[in-house]
Computed example of a mutant assay.
Amino acid sequence: MAATPKRIPIEGSTGYGLMTLTMNKIVPQDQAFETINNAIKDGVRFFNAGEFYGSRDDSLLNLKYLKAYFKKYPENRSKMIISVKGIIDPVTFTPDTSPENIKKSIENIISFFPNKYIDLFEPARMDLKHPVEDVVKSIIPYIESGNVGGISLSEVKGETIERANKIYPISCVEVEYSMWSTEPLTNGTNEVCKKYGIPIIAYSPLGGGFLTDSKMMKPLRLTTVSLKLLMNTLS
C-alpha cells in the first residue's frame, strides 16, 4: 500500500550545511563532530549533506563522516533532519537525473545511514534532459519503501517547483539568497513556495563570506544556511 504523500517538517530558523567540513579543506573528524554537536546544542535541527561533498581523493567523504558520526553518537540521529544532495558526477560536477542515476544515488546514500533511511533526498540540480515530474516519480518508490522521508529541490525556479509539487508534496527548496543573489524574488521561487507553504533553504545569506570577512571570501558556500521562511519575511 502506497504511503500517504507528506512533507517532512523543517524546524527552526537556522540550519547547518556540512559541505565545508569535507570539501576542499578537510576538517579533522573530531573537530567536525564537535561542530555538529555544538550546532545541535544550539537548537539546530536541519542539516544539509552531499553525496559529492568530498575531496579529490574521496568524493564520498561527507557521507563517511556522517556514518562515523552516527556510530559514535547514535542518540543524535533522531535530533536531526538531514537533506542529502545527490545525482552529481563527482568528477565533472554535472547532474544526471535519469531514473537509473537517481536509483544509484539514493541507494548509495542510504547505505551510509542508520536503518538505510534519510529524511530528504535532494537532486542537486536538474539536468534539463529529464522532466522534473519524472525525477519526482523516480524518488517516490524510495519514500514508499521507507528509505526516504521526503523530497527537497535545489536551485530551481517557481515553474519547476509548481510542477514537482503536483506530483508529490515538496518539503523544502534550497536556493542561494543574498544581496548578490536575489533571483528567488524574481524567478517565481518565493511566490510558489509562499503559495504552497514550502520552506526556502536560503544558503550563502552572507554572500559566501563577504559580509563577515572579505579577505576570506572564496568560491565556497557558507556552512550555515538560513531557514527563515522567505515567503513570510520577504513578501
Rank of each mutant, 00 (worst) to 15 (best):
A3E: 13
T4C: 07
T4K: 11
T4W: 09
P5D: 10
P5T: 11
K6W: 09
R7Y: 05
I8A: 03
P9R: 03
P9G: 03
I10P: 00
E11L: 15
E11R: 15
G12D: 06
G12S: 09
G12H: 03
S13A: 14
G15F: 10
Y16W: 13
G17K: 02
G17F: 02
G17P: 02
L18K: 00
L18G: 01
M19G: 02
T20Y: 13
T20P: 07
T20V: 13
L21C: 05
T22V: 07
T22Y: 06
M23V: 11
N24K: 10
N24R: 12
K25H: 13
K25I: 09
K25P: 04
I26V: 11
P28D: 13
Q29W: 15
D30I: 13
Q31Y: 06
A32R: 01
E34N: 11
T35G: 12
I36Y: 04
N38C: 14
N38F: 15
A39C: 13
A39P: 02
I40L: 15
I40C: 09
K41N: 07
D42C: 13
G43A: 05
G43F: 11
G43Y: 10
G43I: 06
G43N: 08
R45P: 04
R45I: 07
F46C: 04
F46L: 07
F47S: 05
F47E: 02
F47G: 01
N48A: 03
G50L: 12
G50E: 04
F52S: 06
Y53A: 05
G54R: 00
G54K: 00
S55A: 09
S55V: 05
R56I: 14
R56M: 14
D57A: 09
S59Y: 15
L60H: 12
L60M: 12
L61N: 08
K64V: 10
L66M: 12
L66P: 03
L66K: 05
Y69R: 08
F70D: 05
K71C: 01
K72T: 07
P74W: 11
E75I: 09
N76K: 12
N76Q: 06
N76M: 04
N76D: 02
N76L: 04
R77W: 07
S78L: 15
K79G: 05
K79V: 05
I81S: 04
I81T: 04
I81E: 02
I82N: 01
I82Q: 04
I82E: 03
I82R: 00
S83F: 08
S83I: 00
S83T: 03
S83R: 06
V84Q: 00
K85R: 14
I87A: 05
I87P: 01
I87H: 04
I88S: 02
I88Y: 02
D89G: 09
D89V: 10
P90S: 07
T92S: 04
F93A: 06
F93W: 14
F93L: 12
T94L: 14
P95S: 10
P95F: 01
D96S: 08
T97N: 07
S98W: 00
S98K: 06
S98M: 03
P99L: 00
P99R: 00
E100P: 08
I102E: 00
K104W: 12
S105F: 03
I106L: 07
I106F: 00
